[in-house]
Nucleic acid binder design. Sequence first.
DNA 1: TTGACAATTTTCCAATCAGGATCATTATGT
DNA 2: ACATAATGATCCTGATTGGAAAATTGTCAA
Lengths: 207, 207
Amino acid sequence: MADRGAPPTLGTVMKSIRSRNGWTLKEMSAKSGIPVSTLSKVEHDRLTLSYDKLQQLSQRLNIRMSDLFAEDDEDTAPRVTGRRSIGTIDQAVRVTTDNYDYHYLCTDLRQKRMIPIITRIRAHSAREFGDLVRHQGEEFIFVLEGEVEIHTEFYDPVALKTGQGIYLDSSMGHAYVVAEGYEEALVLGVCSSADDGLMDSLMSLHG
Amino acid sequence: MADRGAPPTLGTVMKSIRSRNGWTLKEMSAKSGIPVSTLSKVEHDRLTLSYDKLQQLSQRLNIRMSDLFAEDDEDTAPRVTGRRSIGTIDQAVRVTTDNYDYHYLCTDLRQKRMIPIITRIRAHSAREFGDLVRHQGEEFIFVLEGEVEIHTEFYDPVALKTGQGIYLDSSMGHAYVVAEGYEEALVLGVCSSADDGLMDSLMSLHG
DNA sequence: TTGACAATTTTCCAATCAGGATCATTATGT
DNA sequence: ACATAATGATCCTGATTGGAAAATTGTCAA
C-alpha cells in the first residue's frame, strides 16, 4: 500500500521497532541504555535523539541506521525502475588536485552503485605523485589518451597504453602517473560503492 | 585505507565527506543549510548533530545515513582485496551475439563488484536490434569509437558521440545501436555485478 | 463491580548540550 | 596588504537527557 502522506518520524519508527519485538519501554531502556522517560518522549515526538544516542541505539539494539531513518522500505516505496543520466565531460563536476583533474560524470543521478569519472593525470612519477592512495571499494580504470603507469602497493608498476584497462581493489595503495614520453594522460575510471566519489584520501592528501 | 583503531567520530566522517568533494566549510554550509560555525564545531568534535540535522544533511548532500555513521558496510568492502587485473581487448573473453560483440575484461578476477566489458555494436536500428534488453543492476556505457544511439524503455532515443557516456538502470529496457552514418561503434561498458548472472542473461537473450 | 496493587507509561524539573549568530584570530595564497 | 578559509571565543535560545514523581493501565481476588 502506498506510503500515504504520513512522514515517518523517529518516534514512529522507534515505536514500531519496540512493538514489533514486544518490548516494554523498560525493557527497551535496559537493552539500549537509554532512560525510559527519554524513550517515551521520543515515541511521542516530543524529542528526537542526537548522534550519540542514535549510534548507541543502533549498536545496542543491533539495528541498522537505515532502519532508524525512514528510507525506502521496499514495501512502501514503489521502486522506480528506469533512471538514466547522460554524461559528457563538459557537463561533469570538476575537481582539481595536484595529481589529477577529475570530471565526475552523471552527478545528477544519486545513489548509484558506480561512480564514473574521467580523469586527467598530471604527475609523471611516483615520487612526484606522493603517497599512494587508498579508499574503500574497487575501481576500474581505462586509458583513453596517452599512456599510464600504474603503481600499486603489492605489484610492480605496470604501463597501460590507450585502450587498456586495469581493475583493482581500491584499498590497496595505488597511484596513476603519466608514462615516459607523454605530457598528459586521460583515463576513464569507474569506482564501486558509496555514492559521490570515494576519492577522499586523494583530495585530503593531495588537494 | 585500513580501518585503523581511529574511533570514527561524526567529525571525522563529515570532514572526509567535505574534503572528498573539495568543499570549503562555506560551500558545505550553503549546500547543507547548516552554518559554518556549527560545521566547524562538528568537525572538531566539539559538537555532534541531532536527528533532524542529520536527516537534513543526508538529504541536502545526497548522502546516505550509513555514510554518516561509519559502519562497515559490506556494500563498500572490496571483494577483491589486494588484487588487480589488467584488461586488454585481445586477452578478453569474447562473446558474440547478433547485436553485440562482447569482450569481457579482467575475467581472471572473480567476485568483483563491477564487470568491465568492451562491446562492438553492430545493429543499426531498434528494429534490427529486436526486443529491448533488461537485466539486474546498473550500467555505465562510454563511447570509445563511432556514435551510438541509446534506446530505452522510458526515454526518447538519444545519440552519444565518442567521449560521451550514459548511466542507466539496467532493469529498464535498453538497446544500443550504431548511429546513422557509422558502420560500427565501440563502447566500454561497466555493469554493476549482481553477480555473474549477468553474463548468462546477456547470452541467453542474444545468443 | 470494586478495590488494592503492581507494572507501565507519562509528566515535571534541573542540568547539560545543540544550533546559530557574531567577532576576533590565524593561516594561505594573490 | 588583501581576500579567502579555517578556527576559536562568546553568548544566547531552545532542545536533549535523565532522575524522580505523578498518572495511567492492567490484573486479580473478594
